[in-house]
Structure formats: structure tokens, C-alpha cells
Amino acid sequence: MSEHTVKAFDEDITRLRGLIAEMGGLAELSIQEALDAMIRGDDELAEGVILRDKKIDAIEAEVDKLAVRIIALRAPMADDLREVIAALKIAGVVERIGDYSKNIAKRVGKIEGRGTFEPLTLLPAMGEIAAEMVHDVLTAYAARDPVLAREVIATDEKVDAFYNSIFRNVVSYMVENPKLISSAAQLLFVARNIERIGDHATNVAEMVHFAATGYYPPDEDSA
């Protein structure tokens, strides 16, 4: 995009985009580390994820402040306006993604008999896809790329399929191992959290598409 006549406007927008990228990078790292901690039972790593969430919240507050300031001082129009509104909403969603990772990290200490607890092996593949969605949607945001955004939206189906499969697996595991029902229930919540992360990445993808093109992506269900 060509530059604004008022250079400080460009600086504001660049800073806003930088904050979103930083926030998204932290959220992506938290998903991976929360799952690592969960699988290995690493309390220290889990603690790091919980602490990082504060940093994500702080950046969200900074995005809010900057976006409001840009709207008040620069009166953005057209793609600039969409960009600022999208940043405001994306920051809110990324903050939620951070919360889900934190929630997973908090459950790390509640899993018993980790060495023999098979359902744990189902999580990494699902978590990887969700983390990749978050990674790709941030790339799409940085590049203002509506095509990549639509690919992210399509990927959510895979996460949902994983969730359904894990749900069935864990429920049968519960039936066979009544002693470990409590741990297994924790795992259902973890899978649910990852599934929600996928949904939120999808929301971000829709906003990226809107900011880039001015309209939301067409519903793919009919295709």
C-alpha cells in the first residue's frame, strides 16, 4: 500500500500491526508449550505459560488504547478503518486464545499416572494443527492475504474431527478405567480448549479477510 501524506498515520498503523503480531506470536508459543507441559507433566513450563498470559493481556490493552487513539486523532476511512477495527477485534480474540492455553497449563498438575495414561498421546497432533492455524492466520494478517485466511477457515474442520475422535476415545477409556475418570475428564477439557482455539483462529481469519477485502468470506458449507 502506498504511504499516507501524514507519515505519523503510517507509523501508528505499523505499530498497531506490530502489537498484533507480537501478541499472536506469544499466543502461538503458549499453545505449544501448554501441550508440551501437559504431555510431559512439566510444571515449570506450565507456570511459564500462565505468566505469559499476563503479557498477552497487557498487549491487548495497549492495542485497545492505540486503536481508540487512531480513530480519535486520524479519523481513518475505508481500508484504514477496516484495518483498525479488525485489529481491535483480533486482539480480543487472540487474548481469548491465550486464556485457553493458560487453562490447559492449569490442568497440568491434575493428571494422575501420566506414564500409563494413553489418551495423552492423542493431543499433540490436534494441538499442532490448532497452533498452525494460529500461525497461518497471523501470516495472513501480516500479508493482508484473504486466500490464506480462507485456507485457515477450511482447516478448522480437521480440528473439529480430531475433537470428536478424542471425545469418543476418552469416553471409552473412562468406561474401561473408572479409576482414572478424573484425569480423563481433565483431558476432555483440554481437547475442548484446543477445539475452541481452532474456532477463534477461524474468527480471526474472517476478520483478516474483511480487513483485506471489505467483505466476510463466503460460507463454504454450500460448496
Binding site: S2, H4, T5, V6, F9, P76, A78, D80
Partner: peptide, 11 residues
Amino acid sequence: RTQDYITGRYG
């Protein structure tokens, strides 16, 4: 051209 003008990128 409309986009550039209303967003303050014109000339």
C-alpha cells in the same frame, strides 16, 4: 483513486 483520496494517500 477513491481509496487513496479518502484515506489521505492522495498525491
